[in-house]
Nucleic acid binder design. Structure first.
Length: 494
RNA sequence: GGGCCGCUAGCUCAACAGGUAGAGCAGCUGACUCUUAAUCAGCGGGUUGGGGGUUCGAGUCCCUCGCGGCCCA
């Protein structure tokens, strides 16, 4: 992050020379009439005789190109909408104003007022009558042609990446539009968006280790949420029939290109729906998002053509594992026999972690990477799913599905468990696992049990990882690309 | 956690077999009124990620630590 003293001092000197001339290098205002895009569009519309000539325009942006040719200077400024060329002529500006250009550097914000014209090479350009420094930059920009490619620096100083790399800006814009499209879809179906607590006295709703922090005023340890589930269910109990939240959850786990400690989840709950209804909603939701953001239902992800058109393939977990791992897990009623069979397949698993964990590993290792086209895997063992309702015809399984696309899990949903007695038993089973050393076991949430005992209607619930959905739609294999400021290990001596 | 690869000027990258660390862009000085990676002439710029070792001599070889990437678990 050190900048050479030479470059920094050169810019500081220019800053001081501006001040010496009575020019504020950080003026509080600049009245802008057009973005760069609006200015060009207005000119082109007038050129075709389809609108009035824009006359004097006032544009502003970061100086990203500067070509001084004696008494004529061309420059490009970049704003949020795009780039525009501006031309400074000494005979128009006068020698004294023109001299001020010497104090400009690439990276500075400038405002330019003037009229639009086309250069001999055909580029729409502002003939500048007046200009101002809006903010002097003291550090240099990344190289103008190659930009910034150092991956670590791109993440640590994301603003430089965003200045230099159009692709990075586009990915984050897509992220924003994905979230907007999700809201549009759910709102149009009558869902209500509410916010539930980030700070919780027990972290529930997922198998994950939580972050712990300290609430000083109450002299109490609190957790950052690992899911949105149990509070949204309380809202279902409280008569919000369709409710959702898009929010950050926090999981105290490893750091990688696939995992960020904080990530964005959508959870939705719908009374009187079951997991089949939720399945249909998920495929329609994803299709809506793709159509509205990309204008197509076919996306390329990691070299694969993925077709998001509903309906998606549906396969039971039992059949999926049979298909890809070649074993029928129901033939192995206990953890020991299943672990032994998994070992034959080259998968080392500890039977002490339980039968559900082994099945989960089989799913992750053998099935998940093969689910490139959108696929719902359904009917999970009850041990893996302490918040889901049992299947009426098979109490060892629950009405749960996960949605996979491009080899990634993007959705997880259940017919929600609303039997408070069964829920209490499931919590107690989780508690036993926790005491046996399973740090990811669900915590008992007594307050939630009391809520459930007041009655929750049959409900279909959904969790979706927004970051992964954005990865899919932008063809990024690293979650860090789709998060504005991904978490990185700290650099030494800070 | 393990393996492999990377870290050199502000940025993008070179540097044979261990022998004076270079180029382009950016910066500085100058020329230039239609350029657009402007061009031309000249100049400055380095703790080669940190620490240690081998050697007459280390960007290069060895050890170690840090950060990142890819793969595996």
């Amino acid at each position: 992050m050190e900048v050479s003293d030479e470059l920094y001092q050169a810019r500081l000197l220019k800053l001081e020379r501006l001040r010496a001339r009575g020019i504020d290098p950080y003026p509080p205002r600049w009245r802008r009439t057009h973005t760069t895009l609006e200015a060009r569009t207005a000119f082109e519309v007038a050129e075709r005789g389809q609108g009035p000539a824009p006359g004097e325009v006032r544009v502003a942006g970061r100086l990203v190109g500067l070509r001084v040719m004696g008494r004529l200077t061309f420059a490009h400024i970049q704003d949020g909408a795009g780039r525009l060329q501006v031309a400074f002529r000494q005979d128009v500006l006068g020698a004294e104003r023109y001299e001020l250009l010497r104090e400009l550097d690439l990276g500075d914000f400038v405002g330019a007022a003037g009229t639009l014209f086309r250069t001999r090479t055909g580029e729409v350009t502002v003939e500048v009558h007046d200009f101002a420094v809006l903010a002097k930059a003291l550090r240099p920009l990344p190289e103008k042609w190659h930009g910034l490619t150092d991956v670590e620096k791109r993440y640590r100083q994301r603003y430089l990446d965003l200045i230099a790399n159009e692709r990075s800006r586009r990915v984050l814009r897509t992220r924003s539009r994905v979230i907007a499209a999700i809201r549009e879809f759910l709102d149009s179906r009558g869902f209500v968006e509410l916010e539930t607590p980030v700070l919780q006295t027990s972290a529930t709703g997922a198998a994950a280790r939580p972050f712990v922090t300290r609430y000083e005023a109450l002299d109490q340890n609190v957790f950052l949420r690992i899911s949105l589930e149990l509070y949204l269910k309380r809202l279902i109990i409280g008569n919000f029939d369709k409710v959702y939240e898009i929010g950050r959850v926090f999981r105290n786990e490893g750091l990688s290109t696939k995992h960020n400690p904080e990530f964005t989840m959508l959870e939705s709950y719908e009374a009187y729906a079951d997991y089949n209804d939720v399945m249909r909603m998920v495929e329609e939701l994803v299709a809506h998002v793709a159509r509205s953001v990309l204008g197509t239902l076919t996306v390329t992800f990691a070299g694969h053509e993925v077709d998001l058109t509903p309906p998606w393939r549906r396969v039971t977990l039992r059949d999926a594992i049979k298909e890809f791992a070649g074993l029928h897990f129901e033939d192995y009623p206990d953890a020991e026999s299943l672990a032994a069979r998994a070992a034959d397949l080259g998968l080392r698993v500890d039977p002490a972690r339980g039968r559900g964990k082994i099945i989960d590993r089989l799913l992750q290792e053998f099935v998940e990477p093969n689910l490139i086209q959108p696929t719902f895997v359904l009917d999970y063992p009850v041990e893996m799913s302490p918040l889901a309702k049992r299947k009426p015809d098979n109490p060892r399984l629950v009405e749960r599905f996960e949605g996979f696309i491009g080899g990634m899990e993007v959705a997880n949903a259940y017919t929600e468990l609303n039997d408070p007695v069964d829920q209490r038993e499931r919590f107690l089973e989780q508690r036993r696992r926790f005491l046996a050393g399973d740090e990811e076991a669900e915590q008992v949430d007594e307050d939630f049990l009391v809520a459930l005992e007041h009655g929750m209607p049959p409900t279909g619930g959904l969790g979706m990882g927004i970051d992964r959905l954005v990865m899919l739609l932008t063809d990024n294999q690293s979650i860090r690309e789709v998060i504005p400021f991904p978490h990185l290990r700290p650099l030494p001596s800070e």
